[in-house]
Design a protein around this nucleic acid. Structure first.
Lengths: 227, 227
DNA sequence: ACCACTTAATTGTTTTTTGCAACTTACATT
DNA sequence: AATGTAAGTTGCAAAAAACAATTAAGTGGT
């Protein structure tokens, strides 16, 4: 029978530090933002960084559970969308030694965040300097979001439960970073069937009321073609 | 100053086993295959599995280097294409304890493999039962290959340095799993500029000779549209 | 030498998808 | 009731894709 010390002998190698880091996207003032955390401990105590922490193998079922735990600690609830991004590793990314960080990215509607949480949201194109290799994590997360926005329902997870087609249109444009034709966008979204109108529900304002919609599925839907 | 024992105290948690596993794709008899390795050690000694091993933090610069080392040990050279796939983790995927495996996938032209290596190539739709969670790794690797084949030069890395357009056509069909129109395929590939004709070089045979091509770039090229 | 056969490569036509612009609708405000 | 503006639709031209047919270039058999 094997026990921990047998394993250590078998592996016969010094151990890597295993952690998770999370890129929490939200929208603020029509801009794509990331929620940062101020580090309480060394290294880089006091600096703003991506929320993260060590994997606790006695407590976390897997790294995704660890990421969920980190996110809950940060915002108080589970993000509507969470996906593994990439695993970063090496001797120099953390001064404490050879480390491995499984990075996740999540999308959080701004409506679910309170003022103090929104105060820690920074536009992705105006982030402060970040410690470790968090710049690389951010770059990859933004790239992933942009890529995936072109062929899936991903950006919808930045919106509240209900939204108008124009709101969805704008969030796609902000996610992808390019202008999208209104007529084509509406047609494609409708025919993909990712959203459904909420009968009788309209956003009223100064002008013509807008039909409210909700996502048909709570999970990501990939499109056959690009948006 | 910090040292290993301080860190262990700081982390204050039992450690995860950190390893890499690799899905090595190749083509044999017009079929998409994976190269498996027979395990020499417990657990699952004697079973066929994805080539893999522990990360050696004193030797591997990062997990990608570890994957390259594993691949070199298996086939004797670096795969022309290597990419991180996904990180699998949890208490139950390996009987030795809570483990984390960073999975990579690689594409290797059959022409670079010798007979003994090809003997360990199994069609992805007729694989033997695999230990650990290697079935999940394989499923995700095949899915990634199929997805990426639809919008990039990825399948070309399964071919030797030089190839004909029809060979490229067939490898795309095998990678994606669907039929592609000959005329459209040729036009799209040419206009993407991922390949260039080799002046004066033709594959001769019983019929009309076919122009030979090579990749224009040694790195992956993503297309603006689907193939 | 010529014909049949097969694969390589191109050409042409139809259908579908896009990109763009103009237009209609429905409200609040004055 | 007129005006302004955002919501939503319609129509058309251009581009892209799918499909079908044709031409090109060799080998091998007679």
């Amino acid at each position: 029978m094997m026990n921990a010390s047998t394993i250590a002998t078998e592996a016969a190698h010094p151990q890597a530090l295993v952690m998770v880091d999370t890129a929490l996207f939200t929208i603020h003032d029509e801009r794509l933002c990331l929620i940062l955390a101020r580090r309480r401990e060394a290294p880089f105590a006091g600096a703003l960084a991506l929320p993260g922490g060590f994997v606790h193998i006695d407590e976390d079922a897997d790294t995704e559970s660890a990421a969920r735990r980190v996110i809950r600690a940060k915002i108080g609830f589970d993000a509507p969308y969470l996906e593994q991004l990439f695993t970063f590793s090496g001797a120099h990314r953390d001064p404490r030694g050879w480390s491995l960080s499984v990075a996740y990215y999540a999308l959080v509607p701004a409506t679910l965040l309170d003022a103090s949480q929104m105060a820690e949201a920074f536009a992705v194109d105006a982030l402060p300097a970040l410690p470790f290799d968090h710049d690389r994590i951010v770059a990859r997360a933004v790239q992933r979001l942009r890529d995936k926005a072109t062929y899936s329902s991903l950006p919808a997870f930045l919106l509240p439960e209900t939204f108008t087609l124009n709101e969805l249109h704008r969030i796609y444009e902000h996610s992808i970073g390019t202008r999208l034709d209104k007529a084509s966008f509406r047609q494609k979204i409708i025919e993909q069937g990712i959203i459904e109108p909420i009968a009788g529900s309209f956003r009223t304002g100064a002008h013509r009321p807008a039909q409210m919609y909700r996502l048909s599925r709570s999970t990501l839907t990939a499109f056959a073609r690009q948006i």
